[in-house]
Design a binder for these strands. Structure first.
Lengths: 162, 162
DNA sequence: TATTGTTATACTCTATAACTATA
DNA sequence: TATAGTTATAGAGTATAACAATA
């Protein structure tokens, strides 16, 4: 009893209004909000992705752009932006970076000279296999963290948002 | 056969390199990445939260701060920041806004004069019940979107990240 | 010396608007 | 007139570093 009470007060000398200090703080209504849990999980998962792919300096959004272009060569910037839910203005900068790194090339479309057909370069094709290998390692980290079945259940539940 | 092929080419007049235009674009390796699904879901859920609480002008982070202070009056800014995974520098600005709106007050701690004890104001106590009512409505939107059981499964799977 | 709150800076991301060249 | 790509700007959000007051 006294022990339980003490565990709620980290430093006994604190003022009467101070109750606890870090982990023992209740979240009240926040527990039970899907959005809060999802936000915290997303922070964790992106941090792990960035860390796991740090050696190739590829961030989640860059990876998604490369993957979609690789699987659908010739797409326009608009099509990629729409498909991934990225602003087309932002995709311009993302592609600038990937083009400077010789991973992607923009080819002027003959059919519609306003638009660019996006392709991986030969180097991009080569490197993306390494990115995918590292991304698979990251995915195993997720499994280790939440469990193999839970990860699959998660993918099923959220399949409608991809 | 021809029909299936045509469905992959939205406008027949396009150049040979252009294949498809919007929804029909394959994600390839992206499907199967928990991080991608979680990111897209998080975007949706935050947008719905913002929309549902637009009439009270409360965003997800503000709601989480108010909820934690309400459930743990007297907390320091450091304690709130740590508990919610917010930078303490950012919490300063968040609290500035909530204090100007008379929802929160900072009280100088007598025990440790470096720190502030955070409390909801009387007005904050009143208004938070309205915020919680709207947040519950948002939560029902999530249920409508992914299903009641799936939402609960999700909360279970991600409980370790809150 | 270390910590709390604060200020400031930089970088990422989102949201717009406007411009150009094409259609 | 509408669209694709671009440029620019403003606002969140994140990540740091440094400072004053206090421990």
């Amino acid at each position: 009893m006294t022990a339980a009470r003490t565990s709620l007060r980290k430093r006994a000398g604190n003022g009467a209004t101070r109750r606890n200090d870090a982990d023992e703080i209740g979240l009240d209504a926040l527990v039970g909000h899907a959005g809060y849990a999802v936000r915290r999980f997303q922070l964790w998962i992106f941090q792990d992705f960035i860390k796991t792919l740090a050696e190739v300096d590829i961030r989640p959004t860059q990876y998604s752009v490369l993957t979609v272009i690789g699987a659908n060569p010739g797409l326009s910037q608009m099509a990629v932006a729409k498909r991934l839910g990225i602003e087309r203005a932002r995709l311009v900068h993302l592609l600038d970076g990937l083009e400077q790194r010789k991973l992607v090339k923009r080819i002027k479309s003959k059919a519609d000279r306003r638009s660019h057909a996006l392709h991986l370069t030969a180097q991009g094709e080569t490197e993306i296999t390494r990115f995918k290998r590292l991304a698979a390692r990251h995915e195993r980290n997720v499994e280790d963290r939440i469990g193999k079945e839970n990860r699959e259940r998660l993918l099923q539940i959220l399949a409608g948002f991809t």
